[in-house]
Design a protein around this nucleic acid. Structure first.
Lengths: 201, 201
DNA sequence: TTCCTATCACTACGATCGTTGTACGACCAT
DNA sequence: ATGGTCGTACAACGATCGTAGTGATAGGAA
């Protein structure tokens, strides 16, 4: 019988995330999760009956953490312009690639794994859709009229860029690089310079 | 003693790549490689004494294939402009994400794994440097004076974007998306097009 | 020919994998 | 207190893992 104890489930999911980010998919085993969480062996296997369930739990936990981070970060309410958007994106890139490095490495491990696991893919898709919705709302609150399509493109490009930042040489992991990339993302998606009727191509 | 038979090594490396792309790092085992290559079990273990060696071999084989593709693709010698560069990059993105999907999924599996394996990381770094050198040469031959730094940025962004394309929903895998992304990459790195009569403030 | 050496197919080993099952203990309604 | 339910700890299963080692064989040197 699968226990419900949510606190312990969370602890196990956190351990799984840590494991994924540090050791990769290949290192994610029930026993390793037990060990990393400091719980008696067999516990993870007890809560998540299959390896698939473990992966899904990790992904869902990350989704929760990501959402919390986004909500905490959306305290900026003043109307902003293009430059400030670039600033926010750049800062977020740097934060995710350094402070939350392990977490987002785990995300990309799971992203790759989702290619072959329908269960994971579904969670990932939902997470992406939620992110788009939230970000559109955020942009509105910031006084930006970015279209949902453009927001989706920004998010995809953001995610891709973060991957590059995480896996690239560590000397590239600077505020400067992040700023440059953020500018490239925004300029690339939204087109040059902010004008009334913005041009896409 | 480790056999040298280069043809068989290549066959095994190809099987490893296929396995990485289709089943992920977790699916790469000596025995699976044997099976996929249609060789008696024990062969892969014979040629590549450790799992690490297998991963490195796969990475190096991909580097070779990638280089070959690049050289084959650089037959375009006429001087080109910004639009044509975008076209080439877009076509390349689409080709890599569809025709060579498995190969490049393998690349990203290895990229993530390189985070934790010095041997792999070194191969990957060399591969990236070679790509920059080659691409700079290609740009020169095409009549473009893109700076090495910009080329490096283009490559990083290209790689990141390809990751996004490979792992995103399959309905995004179109020539149109590829073209849009290619334009975003070029515009983002090289800045907005410098055209006469363009409304750049 | 005969010997030698490199290459090969194949086997063996201990460790660890994912998963399932069972027995103990805490808790709650009665 | 008692009976029953649920969470937990732990053991055990067969399968598969990474790796090392063992003969057999084939082709050139002597």
């Amino acid at each position: 019988m699968a226990p419900q104890n949510t606190e312990r489930r969370r602890a196990l999911a956190d351990a799984a995330i840590d494991l994924l980010g540090r050791e990769g998919v290949h290192g994610l085993t029930h026993r390793n999760v037990d060990e990393r969480a400091g719980l008696p062996s067999g516990t993870a296997s007890n809560y998540f009956r299959s390896r698939d369930a473990l992966l899904v739990a990790a992904m869902e936990r990350i989704a929760g953490l990501h959402r919390a981070d986004m909500e905490a970060g959306s305290l900026v309410t003043a109307p902003i312009g293009r430059a400030e958007l670039v600033g926010i994106i750049g800062a977020s890139l740097l934060y995710s690639a350094t402070e939350q490095r392990v977490r987002y490495l785990a995300v990309y491990e799971l992203t790759l794994e989702a290619t072959r696991r329908p269960a994971l893919r579904e969670v990932l898709t939902r997470m992406h859709e939620a992110a788009v919705t939230m970000t559109v709302g955020l942009h509105r609150r910031l006084g930006l009229d970015t279209s949902p399509d453009d927001v989706a493109n920004l998010i995809v490009l953001y995610g891709s860029t973060l991957f590059g930042l995480l896996t690239g040489p560590s000397d590239r992991l600077t505020a400067e690089t992040a700023a440059t990339l953020a500018n490239a993302i925004v300029t690339g998606v939204l087109g040059p310079a902010v004008r009334v009727g913005d041009g896409v191509s």
